[in-house]
Write a protein that binds this DNA or RNA. Structure first.
Lengths: 180, 180
DNA sequence: TTGTTTACGTCAGCCATGTTGACATTTATG
DNA sequence: CATAAATGTCAACATGGCTGACGTAAACAA
């Protein structure tokens, strides 16, 4: 293909095989990453869309509907369907913004928070296992590459090193183990 | 939140933050990773499901329907819909297996191969950019972590170190499929 | 104050893609 | 020869994207 005719690329050893493996790593990892929560959600008659709303609401309590739409990159009509269900069933509550009373700030209820913990516990455990097995240095590489894949600086900002002194993390073998 | 009032949880807080960032890296990376191909596919009235079939058929020419189902982890009825369209429109062709004539081995047509190149070019470029920006060592870490996230050894095998291998490897599932 | 824009909600319908269940055909295999 | 396997197909249903149109309340600018 084109790569073969482009000597510049070859210098970087970014061979087609390597790049395709990257593509497939994303596919398989994401496929498996979402499988467990899906099973839990089914018990509540919820789907992946509900999970995302619950997750990001738990992550950033007080977030506006518009901000959530910006993260999910779906239409308000799509969001409305799942958000409406979560509100009606008491997993999420809205509060009118005090600074701007047009805004509806989103919060998990206690019930919602419990489901959130249950769902993300599975995913955190999976990530923890992978991090532990790979080692701290690999985790740093993982972060770098993933940040490179994310398209918008606006989205990357969310990952700005809060771990500024982060190196004290999970080494292979031990781990803190207490986190569910 | 409760964390703030709980002294001695600092290590755990960092760890939870780190794990959640991992969750979000997967979400954002996958979201952006699929966005560009989706736009191209729309022109053909195809969706992400078509892309997956085209991609994996191109990756492993001669693969059986059953093997593809195993990779995608969807039902044969779901696959049948998109595969049928791709066959009818001449993007994919099937050949009866020579070893086992019940099997239908999948191949891209030239038309299909061209679409495949167009689609994966976007994704390969994205991965290439990320790899280049992160550096070789980071890529190694990325691979390690991603492999840890993938659940089944069976799937991980596909990534067995072809590290020093020559370019242009094809991994025909098994059958030579010389039958017409 | 008034007019416009913004943030959010909602109704209605369409489409893609996943699911289950039932059944048919061809071929391999014990 | 009987059974199992690989594949295909029909039908019905659910989820969660989408567009388009329209409504309300609040903020903001002229």
């Amino acid at each position: 293909m084109a790569d073969v005719n482009n000597p510049g690329l070859n210098l970087l050893f970014l061979r087609d095989e390597e790049l395709r493996q990257g593509i497939e790593l994303l596919f398989f990892a994401y496929r498996d990453f979402t499988a467990e929560p899906d099973a839990i959600l089914a018990k509540y008659d919820f789907g992946r869309a509900h999970h995302r709303v619950i997750y990001f609401t738990g992550r950033s309590p007080g977030m506006t509907v518009g901000e959530l739409l910006g993260i999910l990159r779906i239409t308000k009509q799509s969001l409305s369907r799942v958000l409406g269900q979560l509100l009606k069933q008491g997993f999420i509550q809205q509060k009118t913004g005090s600074r701007d009373r047009r805004q509806r700030l989103l919060y998990l209820t206690e019930k919602g928070a419990e489901l959130e913990r249950q769902l993300s516990a599975e995913q955190r455990a999976r990530i923890a296992r992978a991090y532990r097995a790979a080692g701290a240095q690999a985790v740093e590489g993982f972060r770098k590459v993933m940040l490179g894949i994310i398209g918008r600086e606006e989205d990357r900002r969310r990952f700005a090193s809060k771990a500024g002194a982060a190196p004290g993390i999970a080494k292979p073998g031990q781990g803190t183990g207490t986190q569910g």
